[in-house]
């Protein structure tokens, strides 16, 4: 392994990933990525009055993926569904201090978020 240095935020989210798990009952699920390619992310949204009331994630991937999915699920809660495009992967890369070659995993996280949001808007 060449480099196992992770930012404090990535370490913290990897150790104690907030908003991990699945929501039961009436939820929409967005997903992106392939396990065979090393990254798979899923988000569950429970909706109320056009907003994301609760959000949970599941992730198969590197520590950056887990940290990013956890952060996004947390940030998604309470947001209006019409507020699309709120996630800027480059800004999140800065927050997580992601190495440039890992930007691809954030795009998978973003795709899963888009998938969940678009499904929610179709309800």
């Amino acid at each position: 392994m060449e480099d196992l240095s992770y930012s404090a935020l990535v370490r913290e989210r990897f150790e104690k990933p907030g908003n991990a798990g699945r929501l039961l009952g009436d939820v929409v699920t967005g997903m992106a990525g392939e396990k065979a390619h090393g990254t798979r992310v899923e988000f569950d949204f429970r909706l109320r009055d056009g907003r994301v009331e609760r959000a949970r994630f599941r992730a198969y991937g590197c520590p950056h993926t887990i940290a990013a999915a956890s952060w996004v699920a947390e940030q998604a809660e309470g947001r209006d569904l019409e507020e699309q495009g709120w996630l800027d992967p480059h800004a999140l890369a800065d927050v997580l201090e992601l190495p440039e070659y890992k930007l691809g995993v954030l795009l998978v996280v973003e795709d899963a978020l888009r998938d969940a949001t678009s499904k929610a808007l179709r309800i």
């Binding site: 480099d3 196992l4 198969y60 590197c62 993926t65």
Partner: peptide
Amino acid sequence: EGVEGESLLFALRELAVSSGSACTSASR
């Protein structure tokens, strides 16, 4: 099965072991 290599190695950092994968590289 069911765990990604880089996360596994980081999760096992209480152990000095090696991975069969260059999974932190861009090519994985």
